[in-house]
Design a protein around this nucleic acid. Structure first.
Lengths: 211, 211
DNA sequence: ATGTATATACCGTGAACAGGGTATTTATAG
DNA sequence: CTATAAATACCCTGTTCACGGTATATACAT
């Protein structure tokens, strides 16, 4: 009888769980023993379900993956925890590491990488997606240049206009500057906020009450 | 002594006011007698400032342009009101018309159109930006096909993933469908929500508690 | 059987955006 | 004077997105 590693998945989006299920079901050596949509549910279930590896979303309503990781790491120290996230924001990664994860992968991870992560963690090693380590290094470097992360008044102004769904051309017209200048500001803004898209930027801005 | 039409501008974004000021200051026949950043302020100032034309933003915190228009139209019936908005959403336009506006222009309006709007309204006529009338006609037609505006479960699912900053490729991977299909869904979503960009869509979705 | 709604999927195109970079000017501080 | 920060502006490229359209399959209702 083969000794399968038992995996449990926590994510508030069932579609992510279903996607992961389909992939993991094809990976030898692992079996999914359950899944649920909230950290609270997970804690209940883990008290009566034998689990080896916990795959948990980082951002969840009510109780975050960070908190869940802390509790699980404390109550069930044998459970290896792999974090799943859209982003590898350095601060969040650091908090998850502190909380006790063994791995951190992005949600768009391909099958090969997921296999590698699961195998490594199952062997007692750690696994961090390359993008994560890159992100951490960037953050470290950025931390040393903290002044470069502060948004200028102009940049904040432009964020506000982006939030109002003005395009670059419109922003340029309203501010009497070149469209190329707007693009440059956008570039600087995305770099400083460590985001790649307008969606990410707006979330950043809302979170930090910039707008 | 030339008889200039006195304009007052209300917009919570000073940059919009400044932009309008620069343009209007070059238009013969008009003078700006004041501006402020909130509807409440405007009401106070209008009681002691002679104004012929009020340019007001539609969306403002605390008291909207719609409410402002209602009050101004009632207390100062001689004041012609021109609405300024990012969008020409039919429902909003209709409410502003009910409230008593004489004109409605988009914030990205060029100088020529602003001149035309001001002149027409100053003569006692109405002026609506061509996009607005087009939007109203679209809305009228859409109102007749109200079923086509209801978002399907799949579409809501995809909106949620867009909000999580998943790109089309990622959404396709997670849902095991073609990227082309995702594009099609996006197209249908934007059409149904009458939005043109992700920013507009997210605002729509947040407002309506879709996400 | 037909009709409708939904999901899926494709074609084409142009515009916008993200990301790599370069550079200059102005204002301010030391 | 030099150095720095901020604002401005440009180059280039590849990718993504929005928007115009077409079509088929499936499930369900009539």
């Amino acid at each position: 009888m083969e000794n399968l590693k038992r995996i449990f998945i926590v994510d508030d989006h069932q579609m992510v769980i279903d996607g992961l299920r389909l992939i993991i079901n094809t990976i030898p050596g692992f079996e999914i023993v359950g899944d649920c949509n909230s950290a609270h549910q997970a804690l209940d279930i883990l008290t009566e379900t034998a689990v080896d590896i916990l795959l948990t979303d980082v951002s969840m309503p009510e109780m975050s993956g960070i908190e869940l990781t802390r509790v699980v790491h404390k109550k069930f120290p044998h459970i290896k925890i792999i974090a799943l996230s859209m982003f590898g924001e350095a601060q969040v990664v650091a908090e998850m590491i502190d909380a006790g994860i063994s791995g951190y992968i992005l949600k768009n991870t391909g099958k090969q990488e997921l296999i590698e992560a699961l195998n490594k963690v199952a062997e007692g090693q750690n696994y961090f997606a390359p993008e994560i380590t890159l992100q951490l290094m960037k953050s470290f470097k950025r931390g040393q240049e903290s002044e470069s992360s502060r948004l200028t008044d102009r940049e904040i102004e432009i964020i506000r206009m982006i939030e109002q769904d003005f395009g670059n051309k419109q922003i340029a017209d309203l501010l009497f500057i070149s469209e190329r200048t707007v693009e440059t500001h956008r570039k600087n803004i995305l770099r400083k906020t460590n985001t790649q898209t307008v969606v990410g930027l707006l979330k950043y801005a809302y979170e930090r009450k910039i707008i």
